[in-house]
Every structure is written in C-alpha cells, then in structure tokens.
Write a protein that binds this DNA or RNA. Structure first.
Length: 478
RNA sequence: GGGGUAGUAGGGUAGCCUGGUCCAUCCUAGAGCGUUUGGGACGCUUUGACGGCGGUUCGAAUCCGCCCUACCCCA
C-alpha cells in the first residue's frame, strides 16, 4: 500500500526529486528542444508572479522600474575590458538581419551594464540627479557550457531582476550595497528561505566590480545555491562610459555605482527548501492557491454542500485570499494528493457533517488537522495561514542550522563537507591558501565577512598557513 | 573542459546485436459511456510512438553518417 503513494522520488534523493517535481507540480516543462531553455507552465508562472510581485513591492519603495533593450551593439559591449573577459565565452551574438550580415554585431545581453550605462551617461548631468536607482526584470542569455538545470543554470534566464544605482561617492554606493542586502534579506525572509550573506573572494567577484556580496542558501543535499548578488562597481564603469556629474563646486566627477541581481533561482530555492516527499510546500505569500475547498458531496446533499462551499469561497475571496474550489469528478482522496503535490498550504474540507455542525475541516500542508467555525472563518484562515508560514520558516531554519558547522582543521573540513555541510573556517585571505582549501576539499570558498544569524563569526589561525585569518564559508556549490 | 550512457504514445519499459506483423506491453496517461465519491474508485469501448535529417535496402524502431536533447561520472 505505502509503495503506491505516488511516484515522486523521495526528497532524500534530491536531484531526482527536483527533476521530477518540476513537471509533476507543473512548474517547468523541460522538454523544449533547445539546451538550457525551459517552459514555464501556467502554475509555475503563477508562483513566479507572486514571488516577483513581492520583489517588486520591496524594490518600488525607492527604486523605479525601467526597461532596456535586449540587444547590445558590439562596440558598447566591448568597452569594459574586465567585464568582457568575464562574459566573452558566454555571449550569444546576432550576426544577421534576415540574410544580410550585420555591419555591427549585436549581443544578446548576458547582463545589462553595457546596455544601461551609455544611457546613464546621457541621463546624469548634475549632483541633483543623484542617486539614480533603477531596476528591470528581463530575460538574459548566457551560453552556459556546464550542465544546465531548470531554474538554476540556464541559457536563457527568464526572470532576471537587475538593479543599477548611481551615487555621488564611493561611500554612498557602499551604503546602497548594504541597503540592497537588507532588502534581499527581507525578501527571502518573507519566502521563509534562510540565507547567508558573505563577501566573495576577489577571484570570484563580478567582472568589473570592486567587491561582490553574495547571498547563498543551503539546499537539501547540502550544496549551496547563490540566490542573489550585490556588487559595488566603484568607478570602473563610470570611467568607461563617462557617467559623470557636475558637483556643487561646478567640477565634473565620476559617479560610483552598484548593481544587484536576483533571478529565478529564488524560485528554485523556494521549491527545494520547503518541499517534501509529497510534493511542494508553498508559503502562503507565494502560493497561487492559498486555500483549496474540497466539497464532500455525498448522496442527496450535493446541492447544499456545493452552495455552502461556493459561499465559503466567495467569503474568503472577498477577504483577500486566493481560493479555489475543487468540484472535479474525482474522489476526495485523489484531490487531496493532487493539491498536496502542488503545495497548496491549506485545504478546507466541507461535507454534510461539517455543514450540520457549522464547521469546516482545515488541513495544513505542514501536517495538522483542525476544525474551524464557519461563522468566523476569515479570521481563522488568517490565523492558520500565519501558523503555516511559521512552521515552514521554522523547518527551513532548522535545516540551515543543522547544515552549518565550524571547523579548525583541514581533516575536519573535509569530513564536514562530505557530510553535506557548509563549514566555517579561518582563512588568511591569501590566494595560495584559498587554492589549497578548494583543491584539497573539492569545494569552494563562498566568502568572508559572513553575515547570518546562523553563523557566529570567529577569527583565528588560517587553517592552511596558521597566520591570522577571518571566518570564511566553505561549501560545495551549484 | 574530459569521459560515459541513453532517447520508442502524456509517463514508464520490451524489441535493436540477427532488417520483414495484420496484435508490443504497463501506468497515477488521453477521449467516451456508465456506476461511484469523508485519503489515490471500478467496468466496458477507444486513441496514440519509434528524437531530427540524410544514407543503404524491395523493405529500417532495428544497419551507417551527421545533428539535436537528456542523464551520470571525473577535472
């Protein structure tokens, strides 16, 4: 019997689970016949819509949304040498218009600095124009050579939020980096996804940045997934693209810039962090359907039960919830499994017995059944959804906590990594020692200056050379 | 970057070496009819495929070539 509960692989086999749930829960169809390009199913796209609505709301507090072209002329794209080096192997080029070769090749943006900054140079005149804080949510193209993976490593990133800000001074830009990290923390906290922020080592920073702050989450198998980055660009790009302004003294000055990105990896993290053996578990804030009503229609009570279910739906929708009623000709049990697979946080079962008692059975996706009064149902649903969010967050935090540890030797580091953990070590920040750590453990240095409630930073002797070092995160990455 | 292995209906498989079905097969798959419905219902009827392009051949899922895609392992 229990071997017949469905064919979704166990969450413990994370890779298989992930590949399967994408199509079973109708998030992505991976059968599109081009490598690294995938199709959003309507249900997956609805999840995306709610997640990105949340992101937009946060950004719109003090950014403005814009939209720049997909195509970038070769000469603009080639202006910033360091930047080019970072991307040249990954760029798709448009070389023809119809059958006519183009005189100027056009790059499909792998990221939009070189599309946006020439325009910023035109827009920025005076210190009074600063700061400028704009973002866009677009698709970008990267010719990935490593194995592609839906939502994680794509040749077309379909949902790239990139924010590009301009400031009068380096310090102002630094403050913006901090602000955007706070914004990111708020975003992921709302999605119940625990994060660790750290400063990437120099060899791993964004091409053309002064420094890169990265946001990582720990996946079920212990690998880390980078789900956000904030870069301090200093004056690299403003010098290249002549982004200057006249200050109060009438002098021309180069601006300082930041850029900041979040992609659909946030949805990969959402799915992976919360799901279980039965399927997705969506926090109510991201769920296309927050509560599903399953009418139990038996015998001659069809009409009564359906009418009551309809009223319940309308009451809840009027109260602002996203609710569906499932009247399909299926047995109730089959519907339960169907909605559980899709991660709907709350199921409301309404049958003759409940109706007579003036109650409805509320079943949490996180596993708990309670009866609630129909008379006060909107208040009760509000409370129960909040409890579900709390349970999801607690579980994710427990997972993250239990996958972090502090170690003081290479052997202990190796052991921790092989257990599927992310480790905190002391490192002197010299490239040589960094290489030793990465090569001996077959893992990556995520970064220093860890900021997370899950990491109590320490200083100590470098795990390789013994010189004074800083707390550094080491993990296996996606 | 370097190796493997594979692609057959919505999903899962057999067949391929040794070319020749008018009937491949299983399913939580599609369509239809009926009986059902408080944790994955059942009966009957029925639809549907050999990743793509080219080649060899009287004849190709099967042999050959190129391409595309997927998964796994190792830098």
């Amino acid at each position: 019997m229990d071997d017949d509960t469905g064919t979704l692989p166990q969450k413990g086999d994370f890779s298989a689970w992930y590949n399967d749930i994408l199509w079973r829960a109708e998030i992505m169809d991976v059968r599109y016949p081009v490598k690294g390009l995938y199709v959003w199913y309507p249900y997956g796209f609805a999840i995306r819509k709610h997640v990105y609505a949340l992101l937009r709301n946060l950004l719109d507090r003090d950014h403005e949304e814009t939209l720049f072209p997909l195509l970038i002329p070769e000469q603009e794209f080639m202006k910033e040498a360091e930047h080019i080096k970072g991307f040249e192997d990954e760029v798709y080029w448009v070389t023809h218009g119809g059958t006519t070769p183009l005189e100027v090749k056009l790059a499909l943006r792998p990221t939009s600095e070189t599309a946006i900054y020439p325009m910023y140079a035109l827009w920025l005149r005076s210190h009074a124009d600063l700061p400028m804080k704009y973002y866009q949510i677009v698709n970008t193209f990267r010719y990935e050579t490593k194995q592609t993976r839906p939502l994680i490593r794509l040749r077309e990133i379909t949902s790239f939020m990139e924010s590009h800000t301009v400031h009068a001074t380096w310090d102002d830009a630094e403050a913006q980096v901090e602000y955007e990290l706070a914004l990111t923390s708020e975003f992921y906290n709302a999605l119940c996804i625990p994060i660790i922020i750290s400063k990437r080592p120099d060899w791993d920073k964004f091409p053309g940045a002064d420094y890169t702050m990265a946001v990582d989450s720990i996946m079920p198998n212990g690998k880390t997934l980078q789900i956000g980055t904030v870069h301090h660009l200093g004056e690299h790009f403003s010098k290249t693209f002549s982004i200057t302004f006249e200050d109060k003294n009438g002098e021309q000055k180069f601006a300082s810039q930041t850029c900041y990105g979040i992609s659909e990896r946030c949805i990969a993290a959402l799915i992976s962090m919360h799901g279980d053996d039965k399927g997705l578990i969506l926090p109510p804030i991201a769920a296309p359907v927050q509560a599903v009503i399953v009418p139990i229609t038996i015998g001659k009570r069809h009409a009564d039960v359906l009418a009551a279910a309809e009223k319940l739906k309308n009451d809840l929708i009027a109260a602002g919830f996203r609710v569906k009623i499932d009247t399909r000709d299926m047995r109730p049990g089959a519907k339960y499994y169907w909605w559980e697979l899709r991660g709907v946080p709350l199921r409301l079962e309404l049958g003759p017995r409940d109706l007579d008692a003036g109650k409805v059975m509320a079943v949490k996706r996180t596993g708990e059944k309670t009866q609630i009064e129909l008379a006060t149902v909107t208040a009760e649903v509000t409370r129960v959804l909040a409890e579900i969010t709390g349970a999801i967050r607690a579980r994710a935090e427990e997972h993250t906590n239990s996958h972090l540890c502090t170690v003081a030797s290479m052997d202990a580091l190796d052991a921790a990594l092989n257990e599927g953990k992310v480790a905190v070590v002391s490192w002197c920040q010299q490239k040589g020692c960094g290489d030793v750590i990465e090569e001996k453990t077959n893992a990556s240095i995520l970064g220093t200056n860890a900021r997370s409630q899950y990491v109590s930073a320490t200083e100590g002797a470098c795990i390789v050379c013994g010189k004074p070092g800083k707390a550094t995160l080491v993990g296996r990455t996606y």
